[in-house]
Amino acid sequence: MLSYIIRRILLMFPTLIGMTFIIFAVIRMAPGLTTAGGSFAPGMLGAHQAQLAQQHFMERRLHLVTRNGKPIPLVVQYVQWINRIIHGDLGTSIKFSEPVTKLVLQRLPVTLVINVISLIIIYLVAVPGGVLAAIYRGRFVDRAFGISSLVLYSLPVIWVGSMAIGFLANPAYLNWFPSAGLHATNTSHMSYFQYVFDYAWHITLPVICLSYGGFAYLAKQVRGSYLENMFMDFTRTAKAKGLPPSAVLLRHVTQNSMLPMITIVGMTVPGLLGGSVIVEKIFSIQGMGRLMYQATYARDLPVIQSMALVSAAITLASYLLVDIAYHAIDPRVNYD
C-alpha cells in the first residue's frame, strides 16, 4: 500500500507538468494581455483616474512579458514561471500589488470554512434523505424528498441569494441576518463566544445558498446505490442469518454503498477551493471565488495562473485520497 502511495505521488508530477503546459498555453492565448483593459465601473473612479489605472496595469503586464521593449520568448517565460514556482514564488498580483501567496493564504480560509460547512450540511441532509428514500421507495417520503430536492436544485443561486438578502437581511422586511461580510465591525470588543456566534450569524445565508442545490445529486446517488445493494444476494444472505433489518442496512448495505459517496467527496473537494464566485459576490465575502473574479476582470495574470495551478494540484491530491479511501473500504481494490 505504501509503495502504491509513493508511486502514485511520483506519477502526479508528470500530470502536474502537463497541467502547467495547458494552463500557461491557455492563459497566453487569452486576449487582452498587452492591451489596456480591466474593469472599472464608471462612477467608482473618475474617467481620468480609470484611464490612468488601466494604463498602469497594462504597463505591469507588459513588464511581465517583455524585457527592454522586446518580447520574452514564450519558452523562456514558461521556464521562468516554473522556476519561480519551484522556489515557492507564485508571483505578484498586478491588481493588488501583493504576493499571490499572501493573497491566497488570506482568502483560502474564508472560502474553506463556508464551503466545508456547507458540504457537511449537504451530507447530513442528503445521505439520510437518500437512505430513507431507498427504504420507502415509491412511497410518500421518497417522492417528497425527491421532488423537493430537485426543486431546490433547480433554483438559481443568484435568485435565492438576492431573495435572501432582499427579505431576510432587509430592515424593511425581516432583518434576521446581516447582508454582507463575515464579521460585525466591532469584533475587538467581543468575547470568544460572541465572536463565534457573530461569525455563524454572518455565514448562515451564504452557507444556505451553497448547500441547498447540492442535496439532489448526492441524495439520488445514495438512494440509487442503497437500492441496488438492498436487493443484492448478500443482503438476502444477511437476512437469512437472522440479522435484524437495521443491522442488514447499516452493516451490509452501507458498507457496499460507500464507494459512490466517496467518489462524490473527491469530486467536490477541488470545487471547495475555488469557492463560489456568485455566493461570494452576492454576500461580499472576500474569498477565493471573489479573488478569481477580481483577477479575471483585471487580467491579473499571475493570480489567474497561480489559482489554476493550485486547483490542479488540489484536484490531483483529492483523487489520490479517494483512491486510498477506496483501497481502505473495498478489499477488492488492489493497486499492487
Binding site: R236, T237, H252, N256, P331
Partner: peptide
C-alpha cells in the same frame, strides 16, 4: 449464487 451471496467487503 455463491458468487454474489457473500458480502464482498467483509
Amino acid at each position: 449464487e455463491p458468487m454474489t451471496s457473500l458480502n464482498p467487503v467483509m
